[in-house]
Design a protein around this nucleic acid. Sequence first.
DNA 1: CTTTTTTCTGAACGTTCGTTCAGTTATTGT
DNA 2: ACAATAACTGAACGAACGTTCAGAAAAAAG
Lengths: 195, 195
Amino acid sequence: MARTQGSHSDITGPRIREAALRLFAQHGYAAVSMRQIAKEVGVQAGALYNYTPDKQSLLFNLMAGHMAELQAAWDSVPQADSALERLRAFTGFHIRFHLERPDAVFIAYMELRNLTEENFTVIESLRRDYENGVEGILKQGVEQGVFAIPDTKIATLAVIAMLNGVNTWYRSEGRLSLDEVERVYWGMVQKAVST
Amino acid sequence: MARTQGSHSDITGPRIREAALRLFAQHGYAAVSMRQIAKEVGVQAGALYNYTPDKQSLLFNLMAGHMAELQAAWDSVPQADSALERLRAFTGFHIRFHLERPDAVFIAYMELRNLTEENFTVIESLRRDYENGVEGILKQGVEQGVFAIPDTKIATLAVIAMLNGVNTWYRSEGRLSLDEVERVYWGMVQKAVST
DNA sequence: CTTTTTTCTGAACGTTCGTTCAGTTATTGT
DNA sequence: ACAATAACTGAACGAACGTTCAGAAAAAAG
């Protein structure tokens, strides 16, 4: 046997990335074998190497793709004038974006240590870009006198860490709707940074 | 060769656990081999099995030990009467305890997926116990009218997630002292939950 | 000093790992 | 219809994996 019926790189490629994403998130990069990914897709392990030069690149591309998506999505959110309104928009955006991609988020935060040094540097840089955007809002708020925070960098990381926590417990079948979750978190974020 | 000079279980045992803790935190449980741990300690891989029945137990015992320490340490902190003061004490305790054990904390949060089902249940239960203690403070504060939070469970997780974030960036050589970090975070926590 | 116990070595077990590649089949282009 | 290309199989490579165990050396007990 060789090429299979209906096989096409436009189909197999995405399916490999999806399977890898799910398995990496579930069991961890190091614990998942190329053969497991291949089995999920329905091909032999060797076939994966038509789509990625190696396992490490597979991980890196998933993470880099996620960070790029995150930044692009946030960039496309219209920015209000007031820092308060911009922070509110960010809170909602961040919660929703992350809840829609729990696996990618999990990997982006947990598999940093399994990246090679160069790949790690790239991902870290992308993350810093995103964080700097948030810090910009906080700085603006401080200048405008609506936010009272002794250290915008720490506050940035604290806010993001708090919002990221949603992914650890939120279940769509749970007792709270997305809107309610957003409202609760916005309440806390707002109070935490306001004067 | 066989038993080596100066070898003693009181020394080798702890050294194995320390090496495993550090390596698991650095590279991840699945990515670390028993031979790597053994090399770090200066013994052959087979010698590890005098101290743990298998690799999984090594991980579980590290995590369970950490959670037990955490709970015991918090239990030994004297509790004030007012919810505000109790929450302040918790904030300081949590930050300091976690910053003193970055590796153990990292493992306890990141390696849950590498536990067997039964072991996972045990660790999760220990974590819930700890979280319930915090939620108790928030509930008390709501009853006393000093805290305004629509959902104490979410607020608990949000506060803990925010505080845990410290471990991702804090370096003892950094520009902020432990006291300053504690003050900054307490400011945000306090405002986030207060009326 | 002799015996017992503790601690470790070194080799080996079967299994799985990431990766490569010649060959085969399905699809696409002419 | 045939030729060219794209997609995949199946077997193989050496290396590394967790774990076991008989035996040897050091330490402790007598």
